[in-house]
Design a protein around this nucleic acid. Structure first.
Lengths: 361, 361
DNA sequence: CTGAAAGCGCTAACAG
DNA sequence: CTGTTAGCGCTTTCAG
């Protein structure tokens, strides 16, 4: 009863060789039906469970996927995203008996003053994982390069200019923003602002492009006054605060739009706040749309109309792609996941006055 | 250049035995300073990195901590919590060279129709982890029992009646709620409602207790009409929807309170919505406080006054406790982390009219 | 289809 | 302080 049974115990009990048990375990070769029965029974009786440690060691691979994160992040919001991705990965990887390990590149600096890239490469060389998922835009540049150089099977979620050649999985940012903007034009809005960071990241430029395309399709010629650009480092520029700042200063001078599409939900809330502070109402005075459909989007008042993305599914896509990559199968370079627009309470029809105003011009 | 160097390569190059290299690697015994130098250099030159797989196998332990989650969860919000915990764990565990693996008990049902508890026990017997962190209230009962039975080193985050005897780490729910409620009384509110689930879980009963205590301390005798109880399963009862429902029906009959403390932020938002729909303003007509300080709490308008908890730190506490447990050191049975109240815009002074009304009674 | 045998790379007694 | 010697439990040729 004492020690955990080993493959050898099973073998002797079933009067076969360990090799046979092993073959049965991972279906690496055919086993006679009668032997199979005996072995299965022996396993059953002994309550045998193969040791992962020994398996990994013997095969030289850990059947582990690393979720590379930059745990410096204060962003609880981002954490929700990460864990949801992790679960999505798990959905598909668990079936293939892979498990997911969180690797925080930021530890590196704290601990050995290595760069995240070196740290990750080391972990790889230690066989701590068989493939990696890269999610965090702040750490991507050097890391992606390192991953590429070490030819580690990897998929990156979201797209980055430097990630050429890596497998990428992303949501349809331009399509989503087009839908959001089109919703507004369909509500009669003709003068629509875009609140977002300068198009330095793929996300921001894609989303802005979607906005532009929707205007074009609606026969509206865009006005550069409608481009409300936030400032700050890549991440800051996506924040509530940045949006609030930009929006506030925009409201301190004459403006003409009746609706604003924000680059993400957080920024949409920043806009709402700025508007509210100026005594303007959402959506009566100005309509707002966001992007992401973060968990709070439907809980705020007014509930945010926004672009919904299925993050867990995104993780599943990534998982499938990664699985293929790890097993050396061909993988699509880029998977784009569709999104949908959800209409809630932050958008309303443009009112007659605005229409008139628009016709005048 | 081809194959990864092994401990043996290092040994021969340094003209010592592999054992010596091993000793140096994990400081398991003293090594002569000159030998040390030679060996270090050899490792350097070869670019040697020990194989985690081999190490784990040889020692029979994976140096891995399992983060047990119930990935059925739709709750993106909960996911933020989980990943933040994971990062906190990582902060302390990485230094001890442990890594964190996500184990989704829900996979079990999908895959082998095992229970989460069996699944976890199996994983444990496979030596997939050395210790576990339990976070998810929905899965705790059977799981906690299984963990206990298998005497797996574990810490549970949050407290559950069934977790007697396990190491627990929690935030100061009663203290937090007391602070929140006291803030309200200090603002002159005398009639304060509590919006929350029935006290079936430790969280909800603790929070309610904090509310009660604060009333008592302020010399207010609580009124059962002020207890606004939500309905549904444990998790549902904590939701935006439940809060919205309960609040709406409360508003459909006469009420006397001027402020409400919600059991968490999400519920606070549900209350705000219900109030808004009735044409009441927050905080002018009624003040609201929440609990958790979720990332969106400061982004909503009005910004939510709420109890802030440092979740990452909570993860760190859990990490330290778990480390001790895994290494067989004595561990405090229960660690309570302090919280703080943050005043924002959803609370205001009770107005004179209310005061008067209160005096009449 | 099955068995025998040789490791995978490291750790951990046990001697010296 | 250092070397020798066995394995850890499984996979995987290679024969049969």
């Amino acid at each position: 009863m004492g020690a955990r049974p080993t493959i050898h115990d099973v073998a002797t009990r079933a009067k076969v060789s360990p090799a046979t048990v092993s073959r049965l375990l991972n279906g690496s070769a055919r086993v006679g039906p009668d032997t199979e029965a005996v072995v299965r029974q022996a396993m059953e009786e002994l309550g045998y469970v193969p040791s992962r440690l020994a398996q990994s060691f013997a095969r030289g691979s850990s059947r582990t996927i690393a979720l590379l994160v930059d745990g410096d992040g204060q962003s609880l919001q981002g954490n929700a995203f990460l864990m949801t991705i992790a679960l999505g990965l798990g959905d598909v990887l668990a079936d293939a008996d892979y498990s997911i390990r969180i690797i925080n590149g930021h530890q590196a600096m704290r601990q050995n003053r290595q760069s995240a890239a070196e740290w990750t490469r080391d972990r790889w060389r230690r066989h701590e994982f068989d493939g990696a998922v890269i999610t965090n835009p702040t750490m991507t540049d050097a890391l992606i390069e390192a991953i590429g150089a070490a030819s580690i099977p990897a998929v990156v979620i979201g797209r980055y200019p430097h990630a050429q050649g890596l497998v990428q999985v992303d949501v349809d940012n331009v399509g989503g923003m087009r839908m959001a903007t089109t919703h507004l034009t369909e509500q009669g809005h003709r003068r629509i602002a875009f609140l977002g960071p300068p198009p330095s990241l793929t996300v921001s430029s894609d989303r802005r492009q979607g906005y532009m395309e929707a205007l074009a399709r609606a026969g509206i010629k865009s006005d550069s006054d409608w481009l409300l650009e936030t400032e700050g480092t890549d991440l800051e520029a996506f924040s509530f605060e940045a949006a609030h700042r930009t929006m506030t200063s925009a409201l301190n001078q004459p403006w003409s739009w009746t609706a604003v599409v924000a680059c993400n939900d957080e920024m949409a809330l920043g806009a709402v706040r700025a508007l509210t502070e100026k005594g303007l109402r959402v959506p009566e005075d100005v309509s707002i749309v966001g992007f992401d459909d973060l968990p709070f989007a439907h809980m705020v008042t007014p509930a945010l109309s926004t672009v919904h993305q299925d993050i867990r599914q995104l993780g599943q896509h990534a998982g499938r792609a990664l699985l293929a990559a790890v097993e050396g199968k061909p993988v699509a370079e880029l998977t784009i996941q569709t999104v949908s627009f959800v209409t809630r309470a932050s958008t309303a029809k443009a009112n007659a006055f605005d229409w008139a105003l628009d016709l005048e011009t």
